[in-house]
Amino acid sequence: MQPDLTHLTERLLPIFPDFGAEGRELVRPLFRRLAHGRPVEPAELAAASGWSTAAVNETLSRWWGIRYDEEGRINGFWGLDLEPTRHQLRAGERALFAWCAWDTLFLADLMGETLEVTSPCPASGETIHLRVGPDGIEGSPPAARLALTLPDPARARHGVREAFCCGVDFVTEGAAEPWCQDRDDRHLLTLDQGYDLGQMVWEALLAPENEETAMSDCCASPEPESKPVRKRPCPSCGETARSVAGRTVLHHLQQPWAQPDLAHRNLWFCESPACPTVYFDAEGQAFTQADLRTTVGQKASGADAPICYCFGVARGEATPEVRGFVEAMTRDGLCACEARNPAGRCCLRDFPGS
Rank of each mutant, 00 (worst) to 15 (best):
T240G: 04
P228I: 09
R242E: 09
T248C: 15
A176N: 04
R183V: 11
C219R: 12
G139H: 09
F170M: 07
G246P: 06
A154N: 04
F164Y: 15
R247Y: 08
N210A: 14
R186A: 10
R230T: 10
P208R: 08
M215D: 12
C166I: 11
L150A: 05
V160N: 03
D135V: 07
S140E: 14
Y195H: 10
E177C: 08
S221L: 15
A154W: 04
H158N: 08
G136F: 05
P222F: 03
G246D: 03
E177D: 13
W202P: 11
A207I: 11
R242N: 09
R186I: 06
P153E: 00
G159D: 11
S236F: 04
F170G: 05
A220F: 09
T190I: 09
T213S: 12
G136K: 05
G159K: 06
D196L: 15
R161N: 13
Y195R: 09
G136M: 09
Q199F: 00
E203P: 03
E138G: 02
L206E: 01
K231M: 13
E162Y: 11
G139C: 10
H187Y: 09
A156L: 07
E239H: 13
G167D: 06
V171Y: 05
L189A: 02
P228Y: 06
L130M: 12
V168A: 00
Y195N: 06
D217V: 15
L191V: 01
R157F: 00
P153W: 03
H187K: 04
E162V: 14
R155N: 07
C234A: 01
P224Q: 01
D217I: 15
S243T: 10
L197P: 08
P228D: 06
M215A: 15
E223H: 14
R157L: 00
R161P: 07
C237N: 01
A143R: 13
P222A: 00
D217C: 15
K231W: 13
P228V: 09
P224R: 02
L150H: 06
D192V: 05
C219H: 12
T248N: 14
P134E: 02
L148H: 07
A143Y: 04
T240E: 13
G139L: 10
T149G: 14
T248Y: 02
S140P: 14
A245R: 12
E203S: 14
R131G: 00
D184P: 02
F170T: 06
S243Q: 06
K227Y: 07
A154Y: 01
P224V: 05
D184H: 04
P235K: 00
C180H: 11
A144N: 09
P222D: 00
D169A: 11
S236Q: 13
Q181E: 14
C180S: 15
G139W: 09
E209L: 11
P222T: 03
P235E: 03
G167T: 07
A147Y: 06
A176V: 05
L146N: 09
L148R: 05
E211K: 06
T149W: 08
F164L: 11
G198K: 02
R161F: 12
E162R: 15
H187V: 14
A214C: 08
R230M: 05
E173F: 10
T240S: 13
R157P: 01
V229K: 08
D169C: 06
E239N: 13
